[in-house]
């Protein structure tokens, strides 16, 4: 479903040139819940931006659902982002001049009236808001809700066009632990319920419990970390996620920076 091939991204020219991402290649399969972890400045956001078509790689290709996205022009990329991708940023995700409901409807409206996979935008948006527990806030202006509620609304918005992949860049980075847990639980439940692919950049590895895969970025290079199935299984519905996360917070199982060579292998095509 997603294939990244030798994706490299450099910023700047000549002397000031920084290569933030070097020769990254990996696949993501439908329905997978993938975490991207790594130290600050290691290139996680750069990687997410490449697969989110928010900027173009310096070289390499990103193929999503068989489309070589590096070949799209600016408006082709915009249309692709709109219909195939959902975005959740670290903070201030919502347009503060709109209500929560209008924010959730926005990608559908950007897609235009002609394009809707079943149902009218309003009805779909309300249903999504119900599923993220924000039905009561639908009519509130986006700057009137809490940070956790805003992230939940952003997740709902990311789902409205039934995207191939939802991309989230540190979605819990600005939240307290209670809100973080509930946002993580929402993403994991949604992933399971809708067989929705998620790619999530995080510093808070411990909140996520068991995931399908963890990709580690270190100094612009991508490593895939083996995930032993069931090792940290939070149980059905992720109900015990809070307890697991609390335990993880006192004794982190996975140290975020500098994974050891033994626990990583470079992913090659």
């Amino acid at each position: 479903m997603l294939r990244a091939r030798s994706v490299t991204k450099s910023y700047g020219q000549d002397a000031t040139r920084v290569t933030a991402l070097r020769d990254a290649s990996f696949d993501i399969r439908r329905g997978e819940f993938v975490l991207i972890v790594g130290a600050s400045g290691s290139g996680k956001t750069t990687l997410l931006n490449m697969i989110g078509l928010l900027s173009s790689p310096t070289s390499g290709r990103v193929i999503i659902e068989g489309v070589d996205t590096t070949r799209l022009d600016s408006s082709g990329m915009a249309a692709f982002r709109n219909r195939r991708l959902g975005f959740v940023a670290q903070f201030a995700n919502l347009l503060v001049d709109l209500t929560i409901l209008e924010n959730v409807m926005l990608p559908r409206q950007i897609a235009g009236g002609g394009w809707s996979r079943g149902g009218r935008p309003r009805r779909d948006a309300l249903e999504l808001l119900r599923s993220v527990g924000l039905e009561a806030q639908a009519a509130q202006r986006a700057n009137k809700v809490s940070g956790g509620q805003a992230q939940r609304a952003a997740i709902a918005r990311g789902l409205i066009n039934r995207p191939s992949i939802v991309l989230a860049d540190e979605p819990t980075g600005n939240l307290d632990s209670v809100s973080s847990e509930s946002v993580v639980r929402l993403m994991k439940d949604t992933a399971r319920r809708l067989n929705q692919t998620f790619v999530v950049v995080t510093h808070d590895r411990e909140y996520f419990g068991e995931v399908d895969r963890v990709i580690t970025v270190s100094d612009g290079r991508v490593y895939e970390e083996e995930e032993e199935d069931g090792r940290r299984a939070p149980g059905p519905g992720g109900r015990q996620g809070g307890a697991a996360a609390a335990a993880a917070a006192t004794a982190p199982v996975v140290p975020a920076p500098a994974p050891t060579a033994a626990r990583q292998r470079e992913v090659l095509p």
Partner: peptide, 16 residues
Amino acid sequence: TREIGILRALGARRRD
């Protein structure tokens, strides 16, 4: 600025 960026991420074109 930031909201325009979000709009663009959600698929709004330059023209929009």
